[in-house]
Amino acid sequence: METLAPKIIFWVFTGLMLGSALVVVLGTNLVRAAFALLATFFSVAAFYAMLGADFLAGVQILVYVGGILTLFLFGVMLTNRIYGLELETATFQLGSGALVSLTVFAVLVTVVLTTPWSQTALVEEGPTTPAIGRLLMTEYVLPFEIASVLLLVALLGAAMLVRRRIDL
């Protein structure tokens, strides 16, 4: 019973993730696709939680579900005439597209199944947040600072691009 429960949870979330991802890719309604994306992001967070990465799971929900997706939905809803919009691709090369993606899929599956991946035992630890915070301030302090430069420049670029010409 103890070993069965995680497996059931895993498959439930796998199904949810793949199903909602298919809706995102194949659906033609933008609003529905955005809501399906919510389920995808949420299932990914569930995977993180199952792997013992509690902080990562929280960040996934906060940033992707809470931040990016909400903004995305705002964008969709504030845009005019979005409801009647049918998404279409002008060129839809089913044959060659299927060939390429099936090849890539086959290669990746083979690689995943045949490679001796470096594995560490799953340890049942407490919260990971203190350890992450400590690492960010010691061993990974340079990437942490570079990330702040990255965010500064992204902010600056976005502000510059949306500003009206008259303010220049």
């Binding site: 570079i146 670029g157 691009l161």
Partner: peptide, 20 residues
Amino acid sequence: MMIYLALETVSIASYVMVGY
């Protein structure tokens, strides 16, 4: 991780420079 972060900073800044 450093390679990715630095590369991404270069990219994002150059996107804006190209569309200046």
